[in-house]
Design a protein around this nucleic acid. Sequence first.
DNA 1: TTGAAAGCGCTAACAA
DNA 2: TTGTTAGCGCTTTCAA
Lengths: 351, 351
Amino acid sequence: MVTSRDVAALAGVSQSTVSYVMSGSRSISRKTRARVEEAMRQLGYQPNASARALAGRRTHVLGLVVHVSARTELAGVLPFIETITAAAREREYDIVLVTADEGRAGLERLARRGIVDAFIVMDVTREDERIDTLTTLALPTVLIGRPDDSRGLHCVDVDGWRAGELAVEELIAAGTGKVIVIGEPADVPDDRYRFIADFEAGACHQAEHADVSAEVVHPPEPGWPGILATRDLLLSAHERTGILARTPIAAERVVQLLLEAGIAPAHDVPVVAMCEDDVAQELRIPVTNVSADSRQVARRAVDALFVQLRGGTDLPGLQLVAPTLTRRATTMTSQDRGRAGLDATEASRHT
Amino acid sequence: MVTSRDVAALAGVSQSTVSYVMSGSRSISRKTRARVEEAMRQLGYQPNASARALAGRRTHVLGLVVHVSARTELAGVLPFIETITAAAREREYDIVLVTADEGRAGLERLARRGIVDAFIVMDVTREDERIDTLTTLALPTVLIGRPDDSRGLHCVDVDGWRAGELAVEELIAAGTGKVIVIGEPADVPDDRYRFIADFEAGACHQAEHADVSAEVVHPPEPGWPGILATRDLLLSAHERTGILARTPIAAERVVQLLLEAGIAPAHDVPVVAMCEDDVAQELRIPVTNVSADSRQVARRAVDALFVQLRGGTDLPGLQLVAPTLTRRATTMTSQDRGRAGLDATEASRHT
DNA sequence: TTGAAAGCGCTAACAA
DNA sequence: TTGTTAGCGCTTTCAA
């Protein structure tokens, strides 16, 4: 193993000088710096992380707490993980994964053993017991999600209320006279996550505002059978039903049901989904979607974390990311489609 | 911060005794051990990871290299990550995530800086440039996947050939006279991963063996448009077509196309997919699937890694996990379904 | 602008 | 069975 002593010896300087060249926390003459850097290059030197952490009291590691086992929205966490990892690496930080089922003990272990400098916690519920642990650990922390009481911890989340509003606005513009929101399966509480509660509330509020009826449907069971059980409700096109799906999976299933029944999303029944743009674009029919851009959420979370790591204290406490709506086939009229230069065949083929 | 010195002081022993109590590498009297453990408990002591790593030359961290950004099969990696993390934690190891696009440099950094003790590398291609780096780094390593030349690195993979065989066997038993394998989109080389190449070869071999024609179809583009372009081929039921999808996404799309066209998977066109059991069960119609059980693959990989970490050298070099087939609706006759006590309505409704 | 030296909190060899 | 001590490879203070 190559150590800073080896580098120092080769460069003919003291070991501490090598350290100062790396940290930049002391001015070094051009000549010395050049010699040291050349020696590092020659030896392929890489500073030992444990020694550095021990002496410097910084591990350069972030703890990322994720619900990998939750079946719901399985793929949704990957863009987060990807973006967080990349953003951390840009700042010379590595990521240690913690699964949520390690719970509070996992957080304590990572913090107390000095494995991580900071935490990013995803899938935060409204009454998350980890908040307590995190506040006493007193490490820089960012929550993705929004607890009812964040106890001063910084939160980044998508504005669920606005997302619901946007979606319903679009449904109504597409001619909806009755909004059906596909909610959680009946056995799952839908106020566990603030985002979901806000989303449904925002949607209903916007419907009410436009004097349109709205209903949150809770499938009696999870998965396909659950959606199938709501089939009759969804197919009641004569009521000018418009459907709002909170997940891409729900959207996919709804679209599929409509197509099988010979109903064209858009023409007969408008559909809006809450999901990422790329996913919306890749469904059977491109679905008009409200997108949260998880990459942006992730980037903001990492940014906020590094503000804290640098001792910053002037954080807003809550950053709500505004969702955006992208109109696609499922809320377009045929004129729209012509105007957009799109091929109407796909959707109309099934009417 | 609570250190082992604090514990030692409270317990009235030397600091090294505390260390020996933790490692168990020296016999300690019952009395002393009890006193030390009580002191640890009282102080909530957790050993500092950096100090431990520096002194003990073991970081207790594994590097997990994953392709998080690859759009294909996005959700597929999560069970791996979950299982690997859990298995590592059982052995007191943490996981540092490395994204594959850090490439060889990422591996070198982690190894040379002493951040990790070992590597698990996923998504290994047949000609993976990282193999070179890994062999020179000489850390314990397990590859998930199968390069053409593993250079002595231990590999764990699913037996793709067997998977292809099993699937086609089932299709033929279900009355298939012509096997269509949904292959990679035309712009993606399908011999990049050994598993894919073997899967297609195994499938074709098995078809040939039964004197049935087989064809690997490469959709002209990725995503839905690609599948749509193969529609006519897939719907040629009069040729007693049987469809083999290598991914759950392809399976989902095929099933959907068939249903929209009023063709019942199973009754008219049998479908077999390569995917996890839970996913197969949750598609529009439960699809007969060949399953690799990624959890088992992951567990074997971690096991093999710890054999190496303990200095073991008698590893086989390659562990091929045998896939299993589960018959579901898409290859059942109506009799089967009756026998299995299942409801035939779903599938037959669309015939 | 640089060097010497004292830790950081552990592990493990050596000594008793 | 236990204690003493010399590092592990850095960061950072103190001194020049």
